[in-house]
Amino acid sequence: MQINLVEGDITTQDVDAVVNAANSRMRGGGGVDGAIHRAGGPAVLEDCRKRFPDGLATGDAGWTTAGEMPARWVIHVVGPNYRAGQTDRSLLTSCYSRALEVADELGARTVAFPLVSAGIYGWPLDDAVDAAVTTLRDARTQVEEARIVAFGRDTADAIRARLSQFHQGM
């Protein structure tokens, strides 16, 4: 699987699926979650209500329509809230693994990922980047391209540096 970095807006990515860093209620929120719900329109929230009446557990993933976005699907993952004491790294890496499993079930070949839990949930940036890159690199999946979409220069620089280390080690 090819892992690429894009600096910009995840909601505009022309991929099979975009990954949403959702909260466990699955009803929209701030950050990436709010942006995806706004860009996708009411169909995303309607599908969340229908498919996830009780929400999702931390570390798990599920899909909905992407509504009005260029992508076909949204794969929602619930990242751990570091600021609230959810510091188990396996919950964070599970978000990426489970998203890829759902992508495989859907037949998605291109998937755009945000940096899960690194925003309002406060996961330390360097570890969030390492968790994403390492989990994606080691995954057994039918996905051909994992695109990590960075919102902001500092995040993009951290991802670029980690991907550079990854490519040098190949």
Rank of each mutant, 00 (worst) to 15 (best):
I159D: 02
D126N: 04
D33Y: 01
D9Y: 10
F113M: 06
V74F: 06
T65I: 11
H76W: 08
A150C: 07
F52D: 05
A43P: 04
V116Q: 09
D9A: 11
T11R: 12
E46K: 15
V149C: 03
P42T: 11
R72Y: 05
R98W: 03
R49C: 13
C95Y: 08
V133F: 08
V74K: 13
E144S: 08
H167M: 10
R137D: 14
A99R: 02
E105Y: 14
V15Y: 06
T64L: 11
D104Q: 13
V44Y: 08
C48G: 12
T65K: 12
T141F: 05
A132Y: 02
I75H: 12
A35E: 03
T110K: 11
D60I: 04
K50S: 14
V149R: 07
I3T: 09
A128I: 12
Q165C: 10
V102Y: 06
G119R: 01
I10H: 07
A158Y: 07
E46H: 12
L92E: 04
A71G: 04
S164L: 08
G40S: 08
P80W: 01
A61G: 11
V129D: 05
A39W: 05
T93G: 13
A66R: 09
G8A: 01
G29E: 03
T134F: 01
D33T: 02
R83Y: 05
T64R: 10
L91W: 12
A118S: 15
C95E: 10
A66T: 05
R27E: 00
D33P: 02
I120V: 13
M170F: 03
V18P: 07
V143T: 09
R137M: 08
D88F: 10
A150R: 09
T87A: 02
Q2Y: 05
A71Y: 03
D14T: 15
G169E: 12
P80E: 06
T134G: 04
E68A: 15
D154H: 15
G59E: 04
M170Y: 04
A118F: 02
W123Q: 02
A131R: 07
D47T: 04
R137C: 05
I120T: 04
R153K: 14
G40L: 06
G31S: 07
G122K: 01
L106W: 09
I75S: 13
G55M: 14
A150M: 08
V143G: 02
T11I: 13
Y96M: 11
N4K: 15
A131F: 03
D157K: 09
V116R: 10
V102T: 14
V18M: 07
I120N: 00
S24I: 07
L163Y: 07
L136I: 13
E7L: 11
A118K: 00
L56I: 12
W123D: 00
K50C: 08
P53C: 13
G107S: 08
I159T: 02
A150Q: 09
C48R: 14
E145Q: 11
S94E: 10
R25D: 08
G41R: 15
F151K: 14
S97G: 15
L136S: 07
V129L: 04
W123S: 01
T110P: 07
D54M: 11
G30L: 01
F52Y: 14
E105I: 13
G41F: 08
M26L: 15
A17C: 00
N20I: 06
K50Q: 15
A112G: 14
N23R: 01
D130L: 12
G122W: 01
V15E: 10
T110L: 06
G169S: 15
T12Y: 04
L125A: 09
D9K: 14
I120W: 00
F113K: 07
